[in-house]
Amino acid sequence: MNKKTLIGIVIIAIFLAVGFFAFMDNKVEYANFKKATETHKTCQVKGSWVREKESKFDAQTNQFTFYMKDENGVEMKVILDGAKPNNFEMAENVVAKGKIKDGHFHAKEVLTKCPSKYEGTGEDIKRN
């Protein structure tokens, strides 16, 4: 084996090792609220906004609070660092990324999913 190949292999090995650890640190798993409570790690929960319960933006802390119900029907208070996301009202589903803290889900990011709204439905067309 010549020197060049050896250097190459060493570099690739280092790269893969660094990549592996960085990856394990930053992996976010899909979960539900039950699982999130158990792991205490950052995870991603899909669910829907509970419209009946209060939702508000606190200007002092720049946090948006709302209630979310996961796919198993478990309800939890979610505090998002930031304002109410775009398209929040029309979202069919929301995906919150964060972790459980002091009995609520502290989200760093909330994605809104509103596929059906981008394409009209039979109901929409009847209104015309």
């Binding site: 960085a22 990856f23 640190d25 930053n26 992996k27 798993e29 899909y30 991603q44």
Partner: peptide, 20 residues
């Protein structure tokens, strides 16, 4: 990182891309 959601059930934080 981008394909992770189809490989396993999960995503990768942006920090991963920055660090790498």
């Amino acid at each position: 990182g981008t394909s992770w959601p189809i490989i396993a059930k999960g995503t990768v934080e942006p920090e991963f891309y920055n660090r790498m």
